[in-house]
């Protein structure tokens, strides 16, 4: 488990990193936290010509409130997200979700941008980004573009990122929402067998609007359960509505069979976890928290 030879480059700025990406013509990989990249290198599943270390790039690990958005730099470590006072109050789903990511060692090194760029279909950060309706800001020497999280992921470990592009920031809209996540994993901190995140805005009348339900581990990418979300918006999450939303989420999923669970079992769990997540949402609203 030693990587094949590669050139180690260290970028001092985003511009420098982008110039290097351009120079290696798609045969370089960015090293942020290394929690996904380094095992892939060591197992020789990836053999890039160069690894560009962006850990020294300044300004990429900031958490900023900007109007009705929070912008999080791509190099922000999970542990920063976990303990950020800003995020605890403004985007509690992120701080809650981070606790499902790996172990403390992983969370100390791993980064938000790295997680999105790696695009594991079971990844918790991609799931949260979709549930929250985040926008992924990517940059190349040609400039910046903003990609909605729902459109960012194309398949397992596959995104819209062009070889010469890098994720620089993720922007999360902040509204008066309640959020919840539930996950089934084979063991603590393991990849999700299935995860469900839900976000909704409480109405004055006890109902909900703008409900978003996202699922991880049940398709090639984390997915937004579009129909289920639409159905739930404007309701009070009555049990029969929730049950129908679960069936809709199930219809939207195409789960894999792997060593963690069969597709059948994942399908079985989808309505259960949609229900649990939405029940948690209700509970939190009635508790006045989050």
């Amino acid at each position: 488990m030693k990587p094949a030879p590669f050139v180690y480059e260290r970028a001092g700025s985003v511009e420098e990193a982008l110039a290097m990406l351009q120079r290696y013509e798609g045969d370089a990989r960015l090293l942020a936290g290394g929690q996904s990249l380094v095992p892939l290198l060591n197992m020789r599943l990836l053999m890039p010509s160069a690894v560009i270390d962006v850990n020294d790039v300044p300004g990429l690990d900031e958490i900023r409130e900007e109007g009705d958005e929070v912008a999080i730099g791509a190099l922000t470590r999970y542990s920063r997200i976990e303990w950020s006072p800003t995020l605890v109050s403004r985007l509690p789903l992120l701080t809650e979700t981070v606790r499902y990511v790996g172990d403390r060692q992983v969370r100390t090194r791993g980064t938000l941008g790295g997680s999105l760029a790696h695009a594991d279909p079971t990844g918790e950060m991609p799931l949260a980004a979709i549930a929250l309706g985040a926008t992924v800001v990517v940059q190349s020497q040609a400039g910046r573009r903003a990609v909605p999280a729902e459109e960012f992921f194309l398949g397992p470990y596959y995104t819209v990122l062009e070889p010469e592009e890098m994720v620089v920031e993720v922007r999360f809209p902040v509204r008066r929402t309640v959020s919840a996540i539930a996950e089934h994993a084979r063991r603590h901190g393991d990849f999700a067998v299935i995860s469900v995140a839900a976000v909704g805005e409480p109405n004055g009348d006890g109902g909900w609007k703008s409900v978003r339900v996202a699922l991880g581990g049940v398709a090639d990418t984390p997915i937004l359960a579009v129909e289920a979300s639409a159905l739930l918006s404007g309701t009070s999450l009555e049990p029969d509505v929730v049950a129908r939303a679960g069936e809709m989420a199930l219809a939207a999923a195409d789960p894999p069979t792997d060593v963690r669970a069969s597709a059948d079992y994942r399908r079985h769990l989808i309505p259960i976890y949609v229900r649990r997540t939405l029940e948690l949402l209700q509970t939190r609203r009635s508790e006045g928290a989050r």
Partner: peptide, 16 residues
């Protein structure tokens, strides 16, 4: 062999 690494072999940790 389907799961020949610590990623896919589910050894429990203290948390489990």
């Amino acid at each position: 062999l389907v799961n020949g690494s610590m990623i896919d072999y589910f050894m429990p940790t203290a948390a489990d």
